[in-house]
């Protein structure tokens, strides 16, 4: 998954948010990064990237870019 594809998926599907996000966006400042988005991210990582991510590490991530790193 390219960075562009990831950002689109994060914005439209996982976060379901209108305001644009970047790899540098802080998760603390994204209102939509909640328990629903967390589970949705786990689903996206599994179905789109074939990755089973570490839940605690995802919860500790600070930026959108750090979430992208889990899919590599």
């Amino acid at each position: 998954m390219t960075k562009e594809q990831f950002l689109t998926k994060m914005q439209d599907e996982v976060l379901d948010r209108e305001d644009e996000i970047t790899m540098e966006s802080n998760l603390d400042e994204i209102e939509e990064w909640d328990s629903l988005a967390f589970v949705s991210f786990i689903a996206m990582a599994n179905t789109a990237a074939g990755k089973k991510v570490d839940h605690a590490a995802v919860k500790n991530a600070a930026t959108i870019g750090e979430l992208y790193a889990f899919l590599q």
Binding site: S35, F38, V39, I42, N46, K52, H55
Partner: peptide
């Protein structure tokens, strides 16, 4: 319930 564990 643990939503992440159920999704996995």
């Amino acid at each position: 319930l643990d939503g992440g564990a159920i999704m996995d």
